[in-house]
Design a protein around this nucleic acid. Structure first.
Length: 740
DNA sequence: TCATTACTCCTTTTT
DNA sequence: GGAGTAATGA
């Protein structure tokens, strides 16, 4: 009688599943069976016929989490899962609402979703029109302002006009509102709009609000600690009526503060939803005692916590956490790949192994090494398929065909491949469009019958427009795959790559073929394009054995037997900018991120750091991350470091506390030379340009100081005037620059 | 119109 | 060491 989804649950988990009515907060530490509770709970509600699948709102943070939940619930409730229309990320659910009620938000239901690139382009346009100095206020600055406001649920009209403490505030407000107008004319919405506009609709329209309040009889939210204000307000509005809202979260895993996530949402849950029940899941089923101990000791350094102690359910203490110091970042990659080789030799499936990095630029080192050692790997959330140039071009063509008024895409494809419609022509078209206040496409149609353009651009433009029109005619006549192939053929886009004989033009064509292959999974172009903008990742083949390489952020929610966390260095992790901008708050978030990383590991965890790393192309010495010394020693096994220069063994903790001793006033390269350790440097760094002929007034380039002019020479000691002042440097570090 | 070159500023994390 | 940009030349 008792349904089988109860069978494996512990007491707290079971309580969380059973408590269906009224607000519920589940504080679930890492590895405490959170996903199982969520899926069982949903299955329980459906199984007990408390609600139809279509009456459940289930929100996750990533598409991957949504997919996984769908599969797991499907396994319990079978085909009834088909009815779960409202399971998805906040953004996909927002998009769905917005498409249904687009008109009310001043959009058409076939609006396109902008990516960051598009957003920046729009902002640049706006900046130009408003006559703002791009040097003083870079577009990115405005973008982050706008995003902040959107995260807080503030449309332009709700943002206070003046804010004396913040320079450029008024400008930002101005840019925001122009930006928004431009978006609506483009029939486009950005990611923030997918949440902000639905919120606005629900707030301003009682009928609509009541409708959705009664549709959603149960609401369930995953990763609640990462909700920002708009998301919180949306949830609150929608669940106000029946209050059947269950949120799952872990304050120790809150790592999206920079995206507006507000931990207070979780801290204030009891206040916001009166009578809320709180259940803690503290039994960890994932990690060994040593790994868990390491995680616990690290996170205990945070002050801002709800307080929650994870206890290990596993009997074995397991191996200690290994900490390894390496000479350079290259060495570090070699170390990781050697360790992976031994994992391979144990016949383990590599899918159980992950390399987690703080920032994506760190991935390159590992990819290079993995390729050399032929270790199979997959990058999760890295440079994505849909972000490749050729894919974006093709998608731009498709979007233009679906929505010809999409000026940004129009601009992107009008001269790709080359059609003799360059900057000058484009500027003329743009000016005319602004004058008549219509889209580039519309103005082009007019202009081709006047003599505003020269003869050649005019015929070129004419044929381009008629090409687009011919595709548009076919939208409803041929299927979307045929249409895409036709577009690629007519436009000469594929031919362009075929004619280019560079090494990667072939792989570009392969990528385009892959894209066409994916089209078959969708019913229409519009459906495909929506998928592309919302779900930026391509499904990875999970059946082949590959090492997982990803950022710590995208590792949340995953688990692996073997976890490597390289780059444990001050500045890298904790990230310097995070510290600079947010001080202690930033540090605590970095620490939570480290905690997330450590708790991904089930059996083996390797932390490592490089003593020297290239930053912006220059070798820089690094200090071991403070996080290393925050982990209680009893969980750690450290390999002492032999420093060839000081000829001493030392531990990371000593270095961390006494960096002066370590820096010693020399540059990295000088130090390398002193100890004769060259093998890890690249050839270029060691090529001494002894035969170059340097004389005063010569323009030169120095890898550290940049460009400068020679003022005096004394054999190989050269005095150079750099932007930052005069310096005497060795000739071997200089590169000649033409200066006629 | 397009290709090349000199130079500046970078880089956090994602839906 | 790499992307983006403004200036310059063909």
């Amino acid at each position: 009688m008792s349904p089988n989804y109860f069978s494996d649950l512990n007491e707290q988990q079971r309580a969380a599943v059973m408590h269906t009515e009224g607000p519920l907060l589940i504080l679930a530490g890492a590895g405490t069976g959170k996903t199982r509770v969520l899926t069982s709970r949903l299955a329980h509600i459906i199984d007990q016929k408390k609600a139809f699948p279509s009456n459940i709102l289930a929100v996750t943070f990533t598409n991957k989490a949504a997919r996984e939940m769908q599969v797991r619930i499907g396994n319990i409730i079978g085909s009834a899962i088909e009815g779960m229309n409202w399971l998805g990320t906040f953004h996909s659910i927002g998009a769905k609402l917005l498409r249904i009620h687009a008109e009310a938000a001043n959009l058409k239901s076939d609006f396109t979703i902008l990516d960051t690139d598009d957003q920046l382009k729009v902002i640049k346009e706006v900046i130009k029109i408003l006559n703002i100095d791009e040097k003083r206020f870079p577009p990115r600055y405005f973008l982050s302002q706008i995003e902040n406001w959107k995260n807080k649920g503030l449309p332009p009209e709700k943002v206070a006009k003046s804010e004396p403490d913040i320079i450029g505030h008024e400008k930002s407000v101005e840019v925001y509102s122009s930006y928004q107008k431009r978006l609506s004319r483009l029939n486009a919405a950005d990611f923030g709009d997918l949440l902000l506009l639905p919120l606005k609709l629900l707030k301003e329209n009682d009928g609509l609000l009541h409708k959705y309040q009664s549709i959603f009889s149960y609401t369930l939210v995953d990763e609640y600690q990462d909700t920002n204000s708009v998301q919180y307000l949306l949830l609150k509005l929608l669940s106000q009526r029946n209050l059947n809202i269950a949120c799952v979260g872990d304050d120790d895993q809150s790592i999206y503060g920079w995206r507006g996530a507000d931990v207070n949402n979780i801290l204030n849950f009891e206040k916001d939803f009166s009578g809320a029940k709180i259940i803690r899941l503290e039994k960890n089923y994932r990690s060994t005692k040593n790994i868990l101990g390491a995680a616990r000791s690290l996170i205990s350094n945070n002050k801002d916590r709800l307080g929650k102690e994870l206890s290990s359910h596993r009997e074995d203490a397991g191996d200690k956490v290994k900490i390894k110091s390496l000479y350079s970042a290259e060495d570090e990659a070699r170390f990781v790949s050697d360790e992976i080789d031994t994992i391979i030799s144990k016949n383990e499936n590599l899918n159980n192994t992950a390399v987690l990095v703080r920032a994506s630029f760190q991935m390159r080192e590992f990819e290079d090494r993995f390729i050399i050692n032929s270790i199979p790997y997959r990058v999760i959330g890295g440079p994505r398929f849909y972000e490749r140039q050729e894919i974006r071009d093709v998608i731009a063509y498709l979007q233009l065909v679906v929505n010809p008024n999409h000026d940004l895409k129009f601009e992107r494809v009008i001269n790709t491949p080359r059609r003799g419609l360059g900057d000058t022509t484009l500027r003329k078209i743009n000016d005319a469009a602004r004058r008549d206040n219509i889209s580039l496409y519309d103005i082009s149609k007019k202009i081709i019958d006047t003599d505003e353009l020269g003869a050649s651009p005019r015929t070129q433009l004419k044929s381009f427009i008629s090409m687009v029109d011919s595709w548009r005619e076919k939208i409803n006549k041929v299927d979307h795959i045929t249409l895409t192939e036709l577009i690629l053929e007519d436009s000469g886009y594929v031919a362009m790559w075929e004619n280019e004989k560079t090494p990667n033009s072939e792989s570009r064509i392969e990528n385009i073929k892959e894209l066409i292959g994916q089209l078959s999974e969708f019913q229409s172009l519009a459906e495909f394009l929506d998928h592309v903008s919302l779900v930026m990742d391509v499904e990875n083949d999970e059946n082949t054995s590959k090492v997982n390489l990803m950022t710590l952020h995208s590792a949340k929610g995953l688990e692996f037997d073997y976890v490597f966390m390289p780059g444990m260095e001050e500045g890298v992790f904790p990230n310097q900018r995070s510290l600079d901008e947010k001080g202690n708050t930033g540090l605590e978030e970095e620490r939570r991120l480290a905690h997330v990383g450590i708790t991904r590991a089930k059996k083996y965890l390797f932390l490592s750091y490089a003593q020297n790393r290239r930053v912006y192309g220059n070798y820089t010495q690094s200090i071991p991350s403070r996080f290393l010394s925050e982990i209680a020693p009893e969980f750690i096994e450290e390999e002492l470091i032999y420093d060839a220069y000081t000829q001493q063994y030392s531990s990371f903790s000593g270095k961390n506390n006494d960096q002066k001793n370590y820096t010693n006033g020399r540059t990295a390269l000088e130090r390398l030379q002193a100890i004769g350790h060259f093998d890890n440097l690249e050839y270029d760094d060691l090529t001494f340009n002894q035969d170059i002929n340097i004389s005063p007034n010569q323009r030169v380039f120095h890898t550290k100081f940049g460009y400068g002019t020679v003022t005096d020479c004394d054999n190989d000691r050269i005095e150079v005037e750099f932007k930052t002042g005069k310096k005497i440097v060795l000739a071997s570090y200089l590169e000649l620059v033409n200066n006629d």
